[in-house]
Every structure is written in structure tokens, then in C-alpha cells.
Design a protein around this nucleic acid. Sequence first.
DNA 1: TTTTATTTTTAAGTAAGCTTAAATATTTTA
DNA 2: TAAAATATTTAAGCTTACTTAAAAATAAAA
Lengths: 218, 218
Amino acid sequence: MSVAVENFVKAIYNNDKHDIKDTKPGNIAKKLGISNAAATDMAKKLAARDLLNYEKYQELQLTDKGVKMALNVIRKHRLWEAFLFKMFDMSLHDIHREAELLEHQTSDLLAEKISAYLGHPKFDPHGDPIPNANGEITTKDTSISLSEAMEGKTYTIARLMSDDKEFFEFCTQNGIKYRNTLTITKQFSGNKMTQILVGTNTIVLNEDFTKNIYVEEH
Amino acid sequence: MSVAVENFVKAIYNNDKHDIKDTKPGNIAKKLGISNAAATDMAKKLAARDLLNYEKYQELQLTDKGVKMALNVIRKHRLWEAFLFKMFDMSLHDIHREAELLEHQTSDLLAEKISAYLGHPKFDPHGDPIPNANGEITTKDTSISLSEAMEGKTYTIARLMSDDKEFFEFCTQNGIKYRNTLTITKQFSGNKMTQILVGTNTIVLNEDFTKNIYVEEH
DNA sequence: TTTTATTTTTAAGTAAGCTTAAATATTTTA
DNA sequence: TAAAATATTTAAGCTTACTTAAAAATAAAA
């Protein structure tokens, strides 16, 4: 299974989970930074390998086999994140970047060794759940996007979902991290801007940032 | 720099160091498990990129740039070996296999973090020297192949050079490991067979194994 | 030294993973 | 609902990293 295939399957899986459901080739292409034509092409090839269902102009749907592959890669990614986070003093963004590469070159054996070393953690440093060796996520996710949360309420940060370096730098600088607490002090004009309180810091976020922050009721 | 290029350059470097010097495409091809034609092809391409000097029917010679690339990859390989060896209970062969993959997906930053964590080690678990971040090997190598060592003498094991799983299993089972001591008790018919004493074990090795064991005078 | 065996090189071809440009279908909006 | 905008697909083409088969050169053996 090549890097391109693993990334394609992973992109569909992640998109399916977290975006406004749009798994058509164009949207996957955008996530992967490839052309629409390349994505359509790949979709056809993966359909032939029973990793996804493809019908012209329709959404791409992973088969069980495709989901299994995605979860296997995601497991390795998140284990690497947890491991690097524990071992080395590196930014969340740098850790993410390393994991993005290492995930494709990690045997199931090594993944298991890392998992055991960490005490089989259920979450990575962003708060994302780590699938077990069978590709099952045993924790249930009750988190909501901060852009959908309610003014006046206090939440626990459940996940930080982003590939963007600036987002993580911003979070680090402002105490926005996994398991910290925040309160929504004010929402402006249809949730386009959100004012939050983290520790003693009052911060105003726009939607580009709030949509990446997932929280749970306190 | 692709995996194929890194492995090609690495194969020339390693071969140049340790084999009866033969860096012609055919020999490199054999090491990499590709066809002679593919190796010739690659040699021409890498010559165009100033990584090696290529002249028809002649030995391939790495340029300074090529050596630098090789040492950068080798550094990452050996750091991973040292790191995995320290962290996890895995066989030397499994560790080698993981490192063979991870070496190509490791940033200089991560390599430096691993090196620092280990206290900037000078040798990996096979006894191979680890180049520093500038691609310099600061230790001088005075080891010789066991197949060239002398009967009756006692040596310290300096390096175990092999990709072969059975070789490492054999070594592990018989106490043949980095920094252990061995004595050559008998040599047979022009060094084709060598009898050694390791701890309380007497072992007879054929040349396929002795050529992979490097030793230093005691 | 000449023949034979081995290597190296060239040539032609393949698969994966991309690209751009044009054709076709779908979606939006007026 | 028809026109305009957008997205998807098809088609043609490129690069990398291989392959096999044949030609050419080198190395070994008689």
C-alpha cells in the first residue's frame, strides 16, 4: 500500500468524520493538494481494489476494507504524535509533520511497541482518539465544534483539529490545549467571531480557528 | 530526494567502505535487488545531479555531495537503531528493518532530538559509527573482518555488518554482540571455517558469517 | 591470443501518480 | 426553467523507477 493510497483513504475518512460531508474527488483533491483529475483517477483505481465505492459524480464511500486501512494509518499517526510529544520537546505542529511521514513507514509491530510503551493511550496530544490494533475506536466522541458551542457556558477542550502551523502556534501561546478549560464569554454576528476566556486570557477567535477547536460540556 | 536515490547513494557508500571494492552498477543492483539496467539508468541520472561520477564501464564514485547525502541517511539509520534498541525490546534484525524505512522520513530536526536524547552516541547497537550532524565520522575505525583475524588471538567485537535475519538470530543465540570478547581457537583450510570461543561457547563459523563480524585487538 | 562467459549498456515498454486542457455533467442563481 | 457558474470526468502527456531483451563491451578461460 503506497503513501499516495494511504493518504487518499485517510483523507476520505477524516473528511467524512469532520467536515460538512463532501467526499467527492474535488474536495479530497483540495485536502491532498492534487488536481481534481488525479483524484478521480485514484478513486477509480481504489474502487478496483475494493477500498472504496465509486460512481460517477457521486460521493466516494470507503468500503470496510478502506476504513480498516484508514484506521490503521490513523492509529500509527496518533501513536507517533503521542510518543514524540512525550519523548521530545517539539511543537505540536512539528510533531504532526513528523507523524505525517512516519505513519506510512511503521510496521504493526513497532506501532504495538510504541502503544505498549505509552500504556496504550486512548488519545493523542490533540485529543484525537487512537484506534486500537484492531482498528476500533472504543471511546465515544461527545465533543462539538467551538463554533457550535453556546455563549456563557464553560467547556473542556477535547480536540484541536488542524494542519496549520499558525493555528498551533496561536493555541500554544494562548493556553488552548487538550483538557484545558474555556468559557465562551461572547459571540458576535452569527458565530463568525467568538470571545473566550482561557485561564486569565480573554481571546477573540474568528471562525477559521473556532471550527478547529472541539470541546465537551464541563 | 527520493527513497530510491537515497538508497542508491547509500549502497555505493556502504559498498565502497566494506566490500572488495566493486561499485559498478551490477554490484549495486544486486545489493538493492533491482536490475542492472535500472542501476545504469539511475547512475546516469545521479551523475547529472552531481551526486556521483559516471563513466561507461567504470566504477561509480560518489561526489562530495553524494557522500554527504549518504552520510545524512546513514546517520538517521543508525540513530533510529540506537533509539529503538534502547526504547523497545526488539531483535537487532527487526530494528534494522524499521530503521531502513524510517531513515528516509526523518527530518534533521527529529534526528537531532533523537541524538540528544541518547546523549549523542558515537556507535549504534551493531557497533557502526554514527556520523554527526555535519556528516563527519569522528571515530577512527581500526577493526578488521573476523575472516582476516589471527588464530589464537582474543578480540573485541566491533561491528556486526549484515542485513540477514538468520545471521542476527545466530549472533543473539550465541552471545556474539557488540563489545563482547571472542578468541579464535582454530582456523580451518584457508579461513573458510573459523572456530571461536565466546564466553563458554565454542562455535564454528563459515566465511559467510565471519566476513560480517568485525573485531578489534584486545 | 582467441574464444567464451560475464557485465554493462541501450532500447523499448510498463505502472504509479501526477499534470493541464477540453468535454461533460451538475448545481446554482437569476 | 433556462442560463451561468462550478465541478467532474476524460484525454493526452510527463516523470520516476522500474522491467525484459538484445547489443556491445569487458573480463576470464582455454
